[in-house]
């Protein structure tokens, strides 16, 4: 299975310009969504039929901090005018939606907030996702984003055969 990560504090804008460059919605995303978006690009950029709608790929993202970095920004904006643009990212599952929308993946899409990095639990949940008749592969990511410059990430592109 393919695995990628983004070092904590790396310039996400520079990575966007290197790997994508033509998806301006990226700039609107919170840091958690940017991380998920970029990790996915790094994993699937060379896949054939890249943007053909498919339902056989699941997205499962895991974290401990959820979207706390953006939540703080939103709370700060409430001192003046609560920002709708920030508000829409105050859910930790938005990242899985951004990934699915970008890639036209209509399969399982889930975001889990765990008390800590729990490898056994993560892979048990991934195995569960493969129990349906549809899912053949999954984008799996651990993205723990404490702030706009501090995070731990690991993402994998998992095939059903990897789980047998």
């Amino acid at each position: 299975m393919k695995q990628v990560s983004i070092p904590s504090g790396a310039s996400l804008t520079a990575l966007y310009r290197e790997w994508v460059g033509d998806y301006p919605k990226f700039f609107k995303m919170d840091t958690l969504s940017k991380l998920g978006f970029l990790l996915t690009e790094m994993l699937v950029h060379d896949e054939p039929d890249r943007f053909t709608f498919r339902e056989d790929r699941a997205v499962l993202v895991f974290s401990r901090e959820g979207c706390i970095a953006n939540d703080r920004h939103y709370a700060e904006s409430m001192q003046d005018f609560p920002s709708p643009a920030l508000f829409v990212y105050t859910l930790p599952n938005i990242v899985s939606g951004e990934i699915s929308i970008r890639n036209k993946w209509g399969g399982e899409s889930s975001a889990f907030v765990l008390e800590s990095y729990d490898e056994a639990r993560i892979w048990a949940l991934v195995r569960q996702a493969f129990q349906d008749k549809c899912t053949q592969s999954a984008l799996v990511a651990w993205m723990d984003c404490k702030s706009d410059t501090e995070w731990v990430t690991n993402a994998w592109l998992v095939d059903k055969t990897d789980m047998l």
Partner: peptide
């Protein structure tokens, strides 16, 4: 600034 388009420049 208003839309928090972090990393975007006027040239974009």
């Amino acid at each position: 600034d208003a839309l928090n388009l972090d990393g975007m420049t006027p040239e974009d």
